[in-house]
């Protein structure tokens, strides 16, 4: 149940502590409950409905650290009316929050196995909480691999954090971009090309994948080719949402409601629908 308002349709005010521009069109908001309280607890992969006064409300995944719940952190892309208005918010402004909603990444279930995280573009944002959680109990996992693809070097999300993670001796972090100009010394190629080379034991691997739907489909194909089991692959879906609690009907994807059955799904549950058009 929601730790915000007891009526799940009524937003709770949160105060903007910081707005940070990440790339040319993405930004991070750090929020604190306006009426005080004990921060915000959530599970990696869940999302909130964020309301900008008088403009509207949109679902945004939580990108902060679930093990340090004092600050509520969201990273998104300024792409529609609401998110563009959100980017204009300043420290001290108030935002309405409903949530957290939805399913989460199988961080606990993955204990004892290898973990492969594959992210594309802004898809790294909802996976960052899973990375924090994995790192907070690193000893419970065998290999941990993060494969991340972005459009260009300039559009890599959380570059400093990626560098920090890459320096961990017990993490494999590989970043690739779709295209680059001369200065880039890293990988060029789509993120799916990293999968065949990545060091993990496919037979006992939990995969968590988030990015554009096309990227997820091709990523899953490569993971299956490597021998990762269908039910060990998890993907995060995106659909239109108005209520986030299963009443408005907008987020239906075949028999599932992305808001309450997802956004994180076991691939096996929805694989038949992913290759059908306009479901």
């Amino acid at each position: 149940m929601s730790p915000t308002n007891p009526d799940p349709m009524v937003p709770t005010p949160f105060r903007v502590q910081r707005v940070r521009q990440e790339t040319h069109d993405t930004f991070t908001l750090e929020l604190e409950p306006a009426r005080g309280g004990n921060g915000f607890s959530f599970q990696a992969g869940q999302f909130n409905m964020l309301y900008v006064f008088g403009v509207g409300e949109v679902p945004i995944s939580i990108s902060g650290d679930p093990t340090r719940s004092k600050m509520l952190v969201h990273t998104t892309r300024a792409v529609g009316t609401v998110t563009k208005a959100m980017r204009r918010l300043k420290r001290g402004d108030i935002l309405g929050v409903r949530g957290p909603f939805g399913s989460h990444w199988p961080v606990e279930v993955a204990a004892g196995s290898d973990v492969v995280i594959v992210a594309g573009g802004i898809g790294l944002a909802p996976l960052r909480p899973a990375m924090y959680e994995l790192l907070s109990r690193r000893d419970q996992y065998d290999k941990v691999v993060l494969l991340y693809g972005a459009r260009t070097p300039e559009e890599i999300l959380f570059p400093r954090e990626l560098e920090r993670w890459r320096a961990h001796f017990d993490l494999e972090v590989h970043v690739t971009v779709d295209r680059a100009m001369g200065g880039w010394r890293g990988n060029v190629g789509v993120v799916t090309t990293l999968i065949q080379k990545a060091p993990f034991n496919a037979r006992s691997t939990t995969a968590m994948v988030c990015g554009p739907e096309v990227m997820m489909r091709f990523t899953v194909m490569e993971l299956l080719k490597r021998g990762v089991k269908t039910d060990n692959i998890h993907i995060s879906m995106e659909r239109n949402m108005k209520c986030a609690i299963g009443f408005c009907g907008h987020c239906q994807f075949g028999p599932v409601f992305v808001c309450k059955d997802g956004p994180v799904f076991v691939y096996g549950r929805i694989k038949d629908l992913l290759t059908k058009w306009e479901i």
């Binding site: 069109d25 693809g149 459009r151 559009e155 779709d178 789509v190 554009p212 096309v214 990227m215």
Partner: peptide, 10 residues
Amino acid sequence: LQVLDIYGNP
């Protein structure tokens, strides 16, 4: 996939 520019602003 690169040509699709899947991460591009839609």
